[in-house]
Every structure is written in structure tokens, then in C-alpha cells.
């Protein structure tokens, strides 16, 4: 989805002279077109994430609309304190684009995985946290983000060209989940690259006579609590699915809401990376299988949970 994001940004930059793109040595064969078209609004600060985030915040001090773009794990963890102090605390309109979060770098290994970014970003006051799932999400999120006026992180996972949901950019609003299917047995809230897996799991379950409402919970913060309430009332069972650590992510956010709202009587289970770095080398598909977050594992777990309660 990074190519789509950069493509959309290039279009936005033609229309809006205030948008400035800042990269930290990321985007080989992705950003060159943008760089060539806008040599005075594209900057590569080098392998220096702290410098990138601080510089982006500095650009925002004078009213420009900076977009900081680099690999998700280095952006969010190497420059975390710059995100906290320079962007979130100062509440500056900086767009932070995290390239390939989750397991998206596959067998590059654990240093290149970003399974903590949701948890560490949503704890920051003033921060909005979004994960895109498809081209429509990316283009809509890019356009909304540059005029959002507040700090925002967008996780850009790998695109699955086979996954093309049936909604338009106008349906995408930060903080508002998009319902993709209707089922009465359970609701599944998925975010980012887990949407294709969620829809595949939904189909497998439908073949077994189990109806699932799938929601694209692209915005983890602020949380669409209306959608959670709707799902709890309709289905009585809620699942969450994310390519992030099980602790503190989307599942944690939904759990916090359910636990504090006595009126919501529902069963609940999280799917995510089971708090481990220990899966070893592997492709994205293999890693998802190990974590139990691929479509087949999720469908099997949901079926078991619904039928046997485990």
C-alpha cells in the first residue's frame, strides 16, 4: 500500500503546495517520481528517524503539512520520544506514515517486524492511529490526513490485490468502522492487513453455517465504540483480529471498552500475535499461521469458541 500512498501523495502535492514529504532513507523504487516532481518538497534526512520526526514537526511549526514516511518499526520505536514530545505533546499536524507494520517484512526477521506500534502509539494523548487495508482506504486516509490538523499515524501494510471491498473513499472516515458483512452469530473487528484474512475466515464460517459481521476497524484510536455497541447487541459475541501483539492493541482497546460498559453483555476473544518474538524465520503466511491469525486458524478458533466456548 506504500506505492498507492506515495502515488496519492504525489497527486495531493500537485493540489496543495503546503504538503512536504520527509523520508528517512526509505522508499527505493517507490518515492523517486515524487522526489523528481517536487525537489523542493521532498527531503530524505538519511537513516535518522529522530531527525525525520523532529524536522517534520518543525515544518508544521510554520503551518506546512509534513508527511513523515519510513519503515514502521524504526519510525515508531527509534523515534518514539520525538513522536511523543515533538508531535503528540505539541499537537502538531504531522502525518506519520509507517511502512509495512506487523509481519509485513516476513523473513527479514524480528527486527523488521512491528507488532508493538499500535500499543505504544494509542497510549499517546492527541494521537490518532489508523491502519489501511486496501487501495480505497489508503487514498482516502492520505487525503483526510493532510488536512486533519492533528497528529496521526497511518500504518501501511502490504496490499493484497485480491482483496477489493465494495465501498468508496467517501465511506472512509477516521474513527468510523466500515461494516463489510452481516451475520448474527458473531462480529469480527479486524484492522489493516488482517481484513483480507477476516473476509476469508468469514467465508469459511459461512460455508459451515456460521454468520459473521466483519468490521474494518481501520481506526484503532479514537475507537468507534458505537460499532462495538451495535455488534454486541446484535451478536453477543465479539472478536478482534490484528497483526500486532495481543497486548495493548486493537483487542486491548475493544476489551477496555467492553469491560467498562456493564450494559454490553457479550463474549469476547482477541486474535493477535501471542506476546512472543519466538516464531523464527518465516514468510508472512507462515508467521501468521504460527500466531494463529491466518484465515483458517481464525475460522477454526471462532467455530470452536462458538460451539464449545473455548
Amino acid at each position: 500500500m506504500r506505492n498507492i500512498f506515495v502515488d496519492e501523495m504525489q497527486k495531493i502535492m500537485r493540489e496543495d503546495p503546503g504538503v512536504v514529504f520527509v523520508s528517512a532513507e526509505c522508499g527505493f523504487h517507490v518515492v523517486e517520481g515524487l522526489e523528481q516532481e517536487f525537489p523542493d518538497r521532498f527531503y530524505n534526512v538519511g537513516i535518522a528517524e529522530q531527525s525525520m520526526v523532529g524536522t517534520a514537526a518543525g515544518l508544521a511549526l510554520r503551518g506546512l503539512k509534513p508527511v513523515g514516511y519510513t519503515m514502521a518499526m524504526f519510525l515508531t520505536m527509534r523515534a518514539y520520544e520525538q513522536i511523543r514530545v515533538d508531535v503528540a505533546y505539541q499537537q502538531l499536524p504531522v502525518v506519520l506514515a509507517g511502512v509495512i507494520p506487523g509481519y509485513g517484512y516476513g523473513n527479514s526477521g524480528t527486527t523488521h517486524h512491528s507488532i508493538e506500534d499500535t500499543a505504544i502509539l494509542r497510549v499517546l494523548p492527541n494521537m490518532t492511529v489508523v491502519y489501511t487495508s486496501c487501495e480505497t482506504d489508503v487514498r482516502a486516509a492520505a487525503r483526510l490526513a493532510v488536512n486533519y490538523g492533528n497528529p496521526i499515524y497511518i500504518g501501511l501494510g502490504r496490499n493484497d490485490p485480491d482483496y477489493q471491498p465494495d465501498y468508496t473513499q467517501e465511506d472512509f472516515r477516521f474513527g468510523k468502522a466500515i461494516r463489510l458483512s452481516d451475520g448474527k452469530d458473531a462480529a469480527l473487528f479486524a484492522t489493516g492487513v488482517m481484513l483480507p484474512e477476516a473476509m476469508k475466515a468469514c467465508k469459511r464460517l459461512r460455508d459451515k453455517g456460521i454468520g459473521i459481521s466483519v468490521y474494518n476497524m481501520h481506526t484503532v484510536k479514537p475507537l468507534d465504540t458505537e460499532a462495538i455497541r451495535e455488534a454486541a447487541e446484535e451478536c453477543g459475541v465479539i472478536y478482534t483480529l490484528e497483526e500486532e501483539n495481543i497486548i495493548g492493541g486493537l483487542g486491548g482497546a475493544v476489551a477496555e471498552y467492553i469491560a467498562e460498559n456493564d450494559g454490553l453483555r457479550c463474549r469476547f476473544k482477541r486474535f493477535g500475535v501471542p506476546d512472543t518474538y519466538g516464531h523464527g524465520s518465516g514468510s508472512i503466511a507462515w508467521l501468521r499461521k504460527q500466531a494463529g491469525i491466518d484465515a483458517e486458524s481464525v475460522a477454526d478458533s471462532v467455530e470452536r469458541h462458538l460451539r464449545k466456548g473455548t
Binding site: 512536504v20 527531503y43 529522530q50 531527525s51 520526526v53 523532529g54 524536522t55 517534520a56 514537526a57 518543525g58 515544518l59 508544521a60 511549526l61 510554520r62 503551518g63 506546512l64 509534513p66 520525538q82 515533538d86
Partner: peptide
């Protein structure tokens, strides 16, 4: 970095 960004802007 904040100063640099501001000067760049």
C-alpha cells in the same frame, strides 16, 4: 530538528 524544520519551511 525543530529549528531545522522551521528554517526549511
Amino acid at each position: 530538528a525543530l529549528g531545522t524544520g522551521s528554517a526549511l519551511a
